[in-house]
Structures are given as structure tokens and as C-alpha cells.
Nucleic acid binder design. Structure first.
Lengths: 158, 158
DNA sequence: AAGATGTATGTAATAACGTAACAGGTCAAC
DNA sequence: GTTGACCTGTTACGTTATTACATACATCTT
């Protein structure tokens, strides 16, 4: 499996994600409406995070909604159903690239140079964090793990 | 050592942090100006995160500055020097409670009920995250690890 | 002491991000 | 064909953050 940082056949990448989304919608009886589908498509265009207003601009240009709530609602739907993630550091959203269980969000690697965002399985990290927190009597419900740094390609260019 | 979630002598807690800050300023030749010192004192009042505008309100009431940049600049100074941390999930800031090396930010435990924020040593987690990212050729420079959940006291009250 | 330099603060204006509230439309089930 | 649930459209507003420029202050140099 290639990382988001490497050259790869991205349309296959996006197609696979859309297929997962369609399957999930069928499986759970979710409504992947035009706005929601289009927002997911936009997020899937590149392996980076998109601001809500950036998504909104795109929607507006296509006549799919001009006001912030339109974008935020669609993004919220995608995030709730695990089809997208919110990147806290960037106040932005990115399409989910890997099927994973609910609430088991991965860790994110964010390249400060090319803005590419990749996912990293965080099951072990999350377990350890929960264990450590448990020592202090704290019950972890959701964990955010985001790493900012430099990807191999950008490090090479430096 | 008690956690921030337990009852404890908080003024000792705050005093210790201010002492560390003063020492650091001397050691590094930093200028802990009135605004910066006051902002740190405010953050130290409670083990929770304060929004920039909340801090600004306090400053304004004391005649120390009325515009956002005043608060943001002081907060930025504190964060850069490891005297405070930004909690991404909350778009807010909290005083640093533990002396730790630069760039070695701890993990944060945020109680969704009482809003208390505690620090957890994250050296191991960070090392593992860096190692995993390294497999993908990604060089981690800064990592954000934040856990939202319920502290023991609040879980008890539920 | 005067001037030069670097750093901190004051202020205005605005950008960027996010939500509440309500009206209207769509669709499936009964 | 009406009900009820959910989705969308729109207004209005609230919150968070930054840019840009002016002013003040400290420190060092001469």
C-alpha cells in the first residue's frame, strides 16, 4: 500500500473511497444525497485537508448551496459516519482513506510543506493512551493524534 | 503527584509554575512583561483551557489591552516558550503544569464534564508515533495528542 | 547624551471559522 | 394522501484569528 505522500493512481484511490461510501450508505440506510456526495468527492480530490469555506465555494460554484450551514452539515454527516475526518490543527476536513471501525480514528501525518495529509493506524497508540489515562482514573472517549512534519518527498526537495 | 482532577493545594501549584516561568525567563533572557506575566497568572487560575477572548476580557478589565492581538501575542509567547499549551480541540490555551523539554509537549486529558485539562507524559507515545511515521518516511516535528473523556470525579457523580 | 536597533505594545480593520433558528421541500411508510 | 422524519435553503449572528501599521520602550553603540 502506497502512502498518500507517494505518487500513485489517485483516481483509483478516490474511486475506492467513493465505493466504500456507497456501500456504507446502503448497509446503514444512510442518505448519500447530492450535496453530501459532492462534498465527499471534493475532499477526495487530493490528500489534503479542505476548509469548510473552501468546500462551500466549490458547492456555490456548482449551485449546490451558498451558505455555511450547507457545507458544515454535509461535512458533519461525513465525519459522523467515518467518511471524513476533522483535522483539529487545521480547522479543516479530509476524506477518510481507510476503512476503520467507528470511533477508531487513525492518527494523521500532516506535511507542512505540501499540505498532504495521510492516515496512520493508531490502534496501538490509542490503547496505550487509554491505559495511561486509566491510571489517572480518566476514561478516554475520543482521542486526537496529529503529527506535523515533513514527508519524504518534501524532505528530499529541501 | 496529584492529578489536576483531584483536590489539591492549587495555589502551590500555580506558584510553582510561576516560579518555573521566572527561572526560565532569567535563564533564557526572555522578557516576562506585565501582560505576559498576567496572562500566565490567569491561565494558572484553574486547570482548564481559556479562550483567547476570555483572557482578553480579563486583560481589558485591568487596563492591560483591549484588542485581540494583545492576548494572542502574549499567548503565543507563552506557548513558544513552553509555558502554556494550545488545546486544538478547544481553540483555547492552558498553562503548562510540568517542566518538560522543548517540543516535547505532553498529551492532554480533557474532561468533557468539568472541563479540567490535565497533562500526561507522552514521551513513549511520541516515540512510537515517530517510529511508525518514520516507516512511511515522514519526519514528525510536532505532535498533538488530546484525549476527550470523563475524569474519575465526574464519572463518580454520574 | 544622542542615535540606532530590536523588541513589545496599541489600535483599527477585517478575515476566517462556526452555529442558532426557522422556513420550506422531499421522500418513504402507513 | 397525510404523517413524520429528515434534508436543504436562508438569514442572521457569534466566535476565533490575523494583517497591517503606528507607537513606545529597552538596550547597545558611539
Amino acid at each position: 500500500m502506497k502512502t498518500a505522500f507517494e505518487r500513485h493512481d489517485h483516481s483509483a484511490c478516490a474511486d475506492a473511497a467513493m465505493a466504500r461510501a456507497t456501500d456504507l450508505a446502503v448497509a446503514r440506510g444512510l442518505r448519500l444525497t447530492p450535496v453530501r456526495r459532492r462534498v465527499l468527492e471534493i475532499l477526495l480530490e487530493r490528500h489534503r485537508a479542505f476548509g469548510a469555506y473552501e468546500v462551500l465555494e466549490r458547492l456555490a460554484a456548482e449551485g449546490l448551496g451558498k451558505q455555511p450551514p450547507v457545507a458544515y452539515r454535509a461535512l458533519e454527516f461525513l465525519v459522523e459516519n467515518g467518511l471524513a475526518h476533522r483535522i483539529q490543527r487545521l480547522n479543516a476536513f479530509t476524506a477518510c482513506q481507510s476503512a476503520h471501525a467507528d470511533g477508531q480514528a487513525p492518527a494523521f501525518l500532516i506535511c507542512r510543506e505540501c499540505q498532504t495529509v495521510d492516515e496512520l493506524d493508531a490502534a496501538t497508540l490509542r490503547a496505550e493512551l487509554s491505559a495511561a489515562a486509566g491510571q489517572a482514573g480518566f476514561a478516554v472517549e475520543r482521542a486526537t493524534i496529529e503529527a506535523l512534519g515533513l514527508c519524504a518527498a518534501c524532505a528530499g526537495r529541501a
